[in-house]
Design a binder for these strands. Structure first.
Length: 529
RNA sequence: GGCCCCAUCGUCUAGUCAGGCCUAGGACACCGGAUUUUCAGUCCGAUAACGGGGGUUCAAAUCCCCCUGGGGUCACCA
């Protein structure tokens, strides 16, 4: 059995696309499942500029999801270099070989003419095929044209005379056939000596002994050209597996950064955007950073767990069986197989992602939750760097009270009432109106309760609970008649963590202060209206 | 338009290759009920799908054909 070697070959674009991440994951999974090798190769043939800064976020996404690569940038390997911009000699040599065998030819057709021919074909609703006027040119002719300064490209000559179809036995799609007589001769080299994608990919996949090319479905139409190139170069074709692309929520369309504005209106996507809109400004992350839900970074920044994203990504277009949804890394690795990949486009479902998140969040121990919430609190200015250590215990208390309501790490910012100074506590307008202003009993009851609290020495939730209940009994009212007003007074909000947990966290004194402040605030509102 | 791919609940899917165990299973979302001071959670429950038409067969979600619909791709981008 030959060794399993898979690869993911991103071009340095400055961000990691969530769909690309899913493709990378399947490659990684396949390699891990079969004790194979997962390779990261950088497709930077086009723009060699700023590769480093444009690659950073991509590598970071892999690190964050803990998808280690066995060969590639930073780690090296026996088949390097892993940047296509550094492999030009290989492409040149391979191309030269094809030219010598007359399997490829210099084409001096001007871009303008090629374009005109293509448009003409399109107009006549005919399949376009490039001209082969220069196919017969002798080496000497070619030489003199080049010396004369004529521009050219090198095209691979698609073998159209065999009368045979090009057959791809795809691991996901099954047998797919293409007709070579309808295919134009692809350009494999530009006049400036740089290779084109289809060519560089084949040369590299062969040189790196890639056994399985697992990629998104949009590459299916590239496959016949590449298959032919493998043949012409004398290499064995790898196994191809074209997995469905990741569709935008609720659609069958490929998720694309260009359609971001449209996604904002998508009800399924809306919540995700809104969360970012709420969180990022608090963190001081400017919109100019361009974070959006198409990027993996978005999920990292907003406080998703890598395990949740891993789980969700693995379930896009793949299933273990008819039941299992929640899967650990190990479970996925042990069970991943190409024959359980679906053929139809798989929509990305933010709701499902969130439900995975909430499951995996419950597995995270308290201390880790606190540690990972801390950066959000610090960035939002609730804690200074120095307070981090001191504040950890307090944060743990808050998180305990929040319980399951903490789904994302950034959710901690929704509970700012525990972190904001008493004098700066903001009141939710609706809740304040409903529970305080429109409730005539609220103010006197709160004042009465506050004075009771003042002369007490309560500290635990149970003590607050008993105290308030005893007080309610003595007043001969229902708990519901005070608890809502109390919550607004103490937390500024209409809903939140358990009332007595909240009081215990803040402590008796702060509760009393906040009640007084609330009473004052209500008086102000009254006089204004 | 050419080529290629795809088609089961609102969404993701199981079932299709080896037709019967499918009066189509699960999950998410939604809705209802219970619990609770609120929210969340939890527990119960409900609604909900084989795109259409022809075949083949005792039997079709499953096999064949056609139609329709959706999508991908058609660069001297990757």
């Amino acid at each position: 059995m030959t060794a399993i070697r898979t690869r993911f070959a991103p071009s340095p674009t400055g961000y990691m696309h969530i769909g690309g991440m899913r493709t990378a994951l399947f490659n990684w999974l396949y390699a891990r499942r079969h004790q194979g090798t997962f390779i990261l190769r950088i497709d930077d043939t086009d723009q060699a500029r700023n590769v480093e800064s444009a690659l950073g976020p991509i590598l970071q996404a892999f690190r964050w999801l803990e998808l280690g690569w066995d060969e590639g940038p930073e780690v090296g390997g026996d088949f390097g270099p892993y940047f296509q911009s550094q492999r030009n000699d290989l492409y040149t040599a391979a191309c030269q070989k094809l030219v010598e065998q007359r399997l490829a030819f210099y084409d001096f057709t001007t871009p303008d003419r090629a374009k005109a021919e293509r448009e003409a074909a399109e107009k006549e609703k005919r399949n376009y095929i490039n001209n082969r006027d220069d196919f017969e040119l002798s080496a000497a002719d070619v030489r003199s044209k080049i010396d004369a300064g004529e521009n050219y490209v090198i095209r691979f000559a698609v073998p159209r005379d065999s009368g045979e179809k090009i057959v791809i036995d795809d691991e996901v799609r099954g047998r797919v056939e293409f007709d070579p007589t309808t295919m134009p001769d692809p350009v494999i080299m530009r006049g400036n000596g740089t290779p084109l994608y289809n060519f560089a990919t084949v040369v590299d996949d062969a040189a790196m002994q890639i056994s399985h090319v697992i990629r998104a479905e949009e590459h299916l139409s590239n496959t016949p050209v590449q298959a032919l190139l493998f043949d012409a170069l004398g290499y064995t074709r790898p196994t191809f597996a074209h997995i469905p692309y990741v569709a935008a929520p609720g659609t069958k369309e490929k998720m694309s950064k260009r359609k971001l504005e449209q996604y904002r209106k998508n009800p399924k996507f809306k919540m995700l955007f809104e969360h970012g809109d709420f969180i990022f400004p608090l963190l001081g992350l400017k919109q100019e950073l361009g974070l959006d839900p198409v990027m993996v970074e978005y999920y990292e920044k907003i406080g998703y767990l890598p395990d949740a994203v891993f789980n969700a990504l693995a379930r896009i277009g793949w299933s273990l069986d008819d039941q299992t949804e929640i899967m650990s890394r190990d479970t996925v690795i042990k069970n991943f197989s190409l024959d359980r990949v679906v053929k139809s486009p798989a929509g990305f479902d933010p709701d499902k992602l969130l439900s995975f998140q909430s499951h995996w969040m419950n597995e995270v121990p308290l201390s880790e939750k606190a540690t990972r919430c801390l950066p959000y609190l610090t960035a939002a200015g609730y804690l200074s760097e120095r307070e981090d250590q001191v504040g950890l215990e307090y944060v743990e208390k808050v998180i305990t009270a929040i319980g399951d309501r903490l789904v994302l790490f950034s959710d901690i910012l929704k509970y700012d009432e525990f972190f904001t100074p008493d004098a700066e506590l903001k009141y939710d307008e609706k809740a304040f109106k409903k529970r305080i202003l429109k409730n005539d009993d609220a103010i006197p009851l709160l004042q009465d309760l506050a004075s009771g609290l003042e002369s007490s020495a309560l500290s635990t939730p149970d003590e607050f609970d008993k105290f308030v209940h005893d007080w309610v009994e003595q007043k001969e009212i229902q708990i519901g008649q005070i608890i809502h007003a109390l919550r607004v007074a103490v937390t500024g909000k209409g809903s939140g963590v358990g009332m007595f947990d909240a009081m215990a966290i803040l402590g008796r004194e702060r509760c009393v202060d906040r009640i007084h402040r609330c009473v004052k605030e209500a008086a102000n509102s009254d006089s204004q209206s």
